[in-house]
């Protein structure tokens, strides 16, 4: 599912956050939306998820059954283990308990965190949490995955690992959009890049052309 944004403007209290921007995020590719703090990248994502509903212009209408969204700074879910969080990702799919256990285990195994499945979610490391959230997003089996900078407090090596995982995930005919301010790593791993500067688009295309 391709995401199109044309002539989008968003205002907050008479302040222009996004100024008449047009861009797209292609299907089957890993896209990064980069820019400094306050450039409007989170606002763009929140407009796509309908968290912000006052805007001008047109955007692809995403229903909640179309996308999974991992926001910035998610609180750790109390009480739940890593496996239980991933299992909740299957909430809308009607599968048997046995399949549920099997599939959530496979997802965790794919991201090398299957040994943590019975640990409390709040006890694992930041890098492991990111991969668990990605497993949660994939469990929902939706065409679009939107992630808002889920990498803030993680060391460089874990970030690189995570980016290369995202790259393979996007190959499964998914539209994957990651919001980040980390330009260098985005350029190394993503295939489509949109760069925002003060609410306007300063670059769109393959990162090698940046």
């Amino acid at each position: 599912m391709k995401i199109d944004i044309s002539n989008l403007s968003v205002l907050f209290d008479d302040q222009i956050i996004l100024d008449d921007i047009s861009c797209h995020f292609p299907e089957g590719k890993f896209s990064c939306l980069v820019g400094e703090n306050g450039s409007g990248k989170s606002t763009l994502l929140r407009t796509l998820t309908k968290d912000i509903d006052k805007f001008q212009g047109s955007i692809t209408d995403l229903k909640s059954s179309d996308y999974s969204y991992i926001p910035q700074n998610i609180d750790d879910p109390e009480f739940l283990s890593v496996q239980e969080v991933v299992k909740l990702g299957f909430y809308q799919s009607k599968i048997s308990d046995q399949d549920l256990n099997l599939q959530s285990h496979q997802l965790l195994k794919r991201f090398d965190i299957e040994h943590l499945e019975s640990r409390r979610f709040s006890e694992i490391s930041m890098g492991q949490k990111q991969r668990a959230w990605l497993a949660f997003a994939l469990a929902q089996d939706k065409k679009v995955i939107l992630m808002d900078e889920p990498l803030a407090a993680v060391d460089l090596q874990s970030r690189k690992n995570f980016y290369s995982i995202l790259n393979t995930v996007s190959k499964e005919n998914r539209t994957l959009v990651l919001v980040t301010h980390d330009l260098e790593i985005a350029m190394e791993f993503c295939e489509h890049m949109v760069h925002l500067h003060q609410g306007a688009i300063s670059f769109e295309g393959p990162p090698k052309n940046f």
Binding site: S64, S65, Y67, I74, D75, F79, L88, G89, Y91, Q92
Partner: peptide, 16 residues
């Protein structure tokens, strides 16, 4: 009631 434990944004994305 279970998806509520993930917070409002995520439970909405699970259709709850």
């Amino acid at each position: 009631f279970y998806p509520i434990m993930l917070g409002d944004v995520l439970s909405k994305s699970l259709g709850v």
